[in-house]
C-alpha cells in the first residue's frame, strides 16, 4: 500500500489527485443532492404524524451524520500529520475544519427549524443538541488556534494536536451529556425514536447522505488543492499551473 501511496507525498502529485477528485465528485455530488432532495421534497409520501414538516430531515440528517464523520476524519488526518510529519496531512486538517463547522451549523439550524413545529420550541437542552453545539465550538477552536499563530506551519501542527485531543474528548463529552440529561429529566423527545422508516422515504435520505459525503470530499479536495498552491507558491510547478 505504501508503494502505491508514496508518490502522493510529492505536492504536485497530491495536487493533481485532489484536483481530479474534485472535478469528478463535485458534479456527482450536485446531481445526487438534486435528485435526493427533489425526490424527498416532492415525491416522497408525507408523514402521517408530522405531515410535510418532516421533509427537512433530508437536509438535517445528512448534515448531522457528517458533522461527526468529518470530525473523525479530521482527527485521523491529524494523527497522520504528526506521525509522518507530512505537510499535506496538516493542510487537509485545515481544509476539513471549516467544512465540518458549516455542516454542524446546518444540522443545528435545520434541527431548530424542525423543532419549532414539532416540539414547540427552537431549542431544548437535549443530549444530542447539546453535544452537537459543543462540537461546533470544537471545530471553531481548531480554526481559531490555526489563525492565532504567525508561523503557519506551527499553527497547523498545533491545530492537528487539538484535533486529536478533540477526537479523544468527543465521545467523553457525548456520553457525559447524555448521562446528564437522563439524570435531569426522564423521557424527553428523542429525535430518532420513530417507527422504522418507510422505503419511499428512506431512499432519498440515503441518496442525500451519500451525496453529502461526496460533497464533503469534493469541497475538501478543492480547499486542499488551494491551500497546497498557496503554501507552495514559490515553486515552479505552481507558477506553471497558475499561468
Amino acid at each position: 500500500m505504501f508503494k502505491w501511496l508514496h508518490p502522493y507525498a510529492k505536492p504536485e502529485r497530491a495536487y493533481a489527485l485532489a484536483n481530479r477528485l474534485y472535478l469528478w465528485l463535485w458534479p456527482l455530488a450536485l446531481i445526487g443532492l438534486f435528485t435526493g432532495s427533489l425526490w424527498g421534497l416532492m415525491f416522497a409520501p408525507s408523514d402521517y404524524q408530522q405531515s410535510d414538516s418532516f421533509r427537512i430531515m433530508y437536509i438535517h440528517v445528512p448534515a448531522a451524520i457528517w458533522s461527526m464523520g468529518i470530525y473523525m476524519s479530521m482527527g485521523i488526518a491529524g494523527i497522520c500529520a504528526l506521525v509522518w510529519q507530512m505537510r499535506s496531512f496538516e493542510l487537509s486538517v485545515l481544509a476539513m475544519a471549516p467544512i465540518g463547522a458549516v455542516f454542524t451549523a446546518i444540522a443545528l439550524f435545520t434541527g431548530s427549524f424542525w423543532g419549532k413545529p414539532m416540539w414547540g420550541t427552537w431549542w431544548v437542552w437535549d443530549a444530542r443538541l447539546t453535544s452537537e453545539l459543543i462540537l461546533l465550538f470544537l471545530y471553531l477552536g481548531v480554526f481559531a488556534l490555526f489563525y492565532s499563530f504567525d508561523d503557519k506551519r506551527a499553527g497547523a501542527k498545533a491545530a492537528c494536536i487539538l484535533a486529536i485531543i478533540g477526537m479523544i474528548n468527543v465521545p467523553i463529552i457525548h456520553y457525559s451529556v447524555e448521562w446528564w440529561n437522563s439524570l435531569h429529566q426522564g423521557a424527553s423527545i428523542t429525535k430518532f425514536d420513530k417507527p422504522s422508516i418507510a422505503k419511499e422515504m428512506l431512499w432519498p435520505l440515503l441518496i442525500n447522505i451519500f451525496s453529502c459525503l461526496l460533497l464533503f470530499i469534493a469541497l475538501t479536495c478543492y480547499r486542499f488543492a488551494t491551500e497546497l498552491l498557496a503554501s507552495e507558491s514559490h515553486r515552479k510547478w505552481v507558477t506553471k499551473i497558475i499561468q
Binding site: 459543543i134 465550538f137 470544537l138 471553531l140 477552536g141 481559531a144 488556534l145 492565532s148 499563530f149 504567525d150 508561523d151 506551527a154 499553527g155 498545533a158 494536536i161 487539538l162 485531543i165 474528548n169 467523553i172 463529552i173 457525559s176 451529556v177 448521562w179 446528564w180
Partner: peptide
C-alpha cells in the same frame, strides 16, 4: 498550544471551555 502566539487568552477560553463540560456535568 498557545505559548508562542500573541492572541493567547481569548483563544485559550475557546479551546478549554468545551473540554470542561464533562467535569461540570459530573
Amino acid at each position: 498550544l498557545l505559548v508562542a502566539s500573541r492572541k493567547g487568552s481569548g483563544v485559550l477560553a475557546l479551546l478549554l471551555l468545551p473540554m470542561l463540560i464533562p467535569a461540570l456535568i459530573f
